[in-house]
Nucleic acid binder design. Structure first.
Length: 294
DNA sequence: CCTTATGCCTGAATGC
DNA sequence: TGCATTCAGGCATAAG
């Protein structure tokens, strides 16, 4: 599921391809994904404009055009890939010798899960594929982007100047919610999802059920530092792929092997050997070490 | 203000 | 083999 490191990896891929390219036609096959404007306006406004930049805030990807910006929330299974027909080999998919399954080689051919295609004048395209259709797209005039509810409701991005120990401490100390749930709240800090929230709490030796307001200053500082370190490390590994996540080139990330707790419920803690517990906190699955985390 | 529940979705995994 | 059920979860929204 795309959290900050996955979205950042997609962004870094797209920024190599998109700026300067001109949109010829916008093909929206599943109109409900575009949330704040009619499809006709969405297509009409964007057609003919060129990409100026690709940015990210938290888990939100921002596609900048000359007069407008598009916000993309990838939800659970959203994929944004760049497609260049001139670079397609004829063997776009191959059969994995290990699994017998079709394995992507870089680019995705549009299929029944491809819901939005931005066609460029040079015949390349940006394909949005989303199996579970939890993704959301928004269109804003550039000057209104900062006032959008989607960006306005975000807390500090961990790699922005707004992300400080003081801001994190303030946001954690004012809520009695479980710290795990608080870390998933995009208004507290923007970018963590279930994978990295579990990883941050393990690295910080904090039980996920603890009330956020009960954390000591030292624990908050550990969380503050570990958020940045764990996300940076995940970005260096090009994100975590469990099933659906792919980068702008359709490639998987390599960060699964870097995870200490997420996806390892019932296995042994890599630090102390205790069996990792798996439970539900606030409706979300959660894995932690009962020995290492207090 | 808070917490909990629900709906949106498909596909993989599981149970009978 | 097939059919029904459960689970995965980001996020908005409603209810308690």
């Amino acid at each position: 599921m795309p959290e900050l490191p996955e979205v950042e990896t997609i962004r870094r891929g797209l920024v190599e391809y998109l700026p300067g390219r001109v949109l010829a036609d916008v093909e929206v096959r599943l109109p409900k994904l575009v949330k704040n404007v009619e499809i006709s306006a969405f297509s009409h406004i964007l057609s003919g404009q060129h990409f100026t930049d690709v940015r990210r805030l938290g888990k939100i990807l921002i596609l900048d055009f000359q007069t407008h910006s598009v916000l993309v929330r990838l939800g659970m299974t959203g994929q944004l890939t760049f497609r260049d027909p001139e670079k397609l080999d004829n063997n776009e998919f191959s059969i994995s010798p290990l699994t017998g399954l079709q394995r992507a080689h870089g680019q995705f051919a549009p299929d029944k899960h491809t819901h939005i295609i931005l066609h460029m004048q040079d015949n390349t395209s940006l394909c949005y594929r989303d199996i579970r259709q939890f993704g959301k797209w928004y269109l804003y005039k550039s000057e209104h982007l900062r006032d959008s509810p989607e960006l306005n409701s975000l807390g500090p991005d961990p790699f922005s100047e707004e992300y400080t120990l003081a801001s994190l401490a303030q946001n954690l100390k004012k809520t009695s919610r479980a710290v795990k749930i608080a870390l998933l709240d995009q208004a507290v800090v923007a970018g963590l999802g279930n994978i990295y929230a579990d990883e941050v709490l393990f690295a910080s030796c904090i039980q996920p059920t603890r009330a956020a307001a009960s954390l000591t200053d030292a624990e908050i500082e550990a969380v503050f530092v570990n958020i940045k370190q764990i996300l940076l490390s995940a970005i260096a590994n090009r994100g975590t792929t469990f099933s659906d996540y792919r980068d702008a080139n359709g490639e998987k990330g390599e960060n699964v092997g870097n995870l200490k707790v997420y996806g390892r419920g019932g296995e042994k803690c890599l630090t102390c050997g205790t069996e990792l517990l798996k439970g539900r906190i606030g409706g979300r699955s959660c894995v932690w070490c009962p020995q290492c985390q207090h």
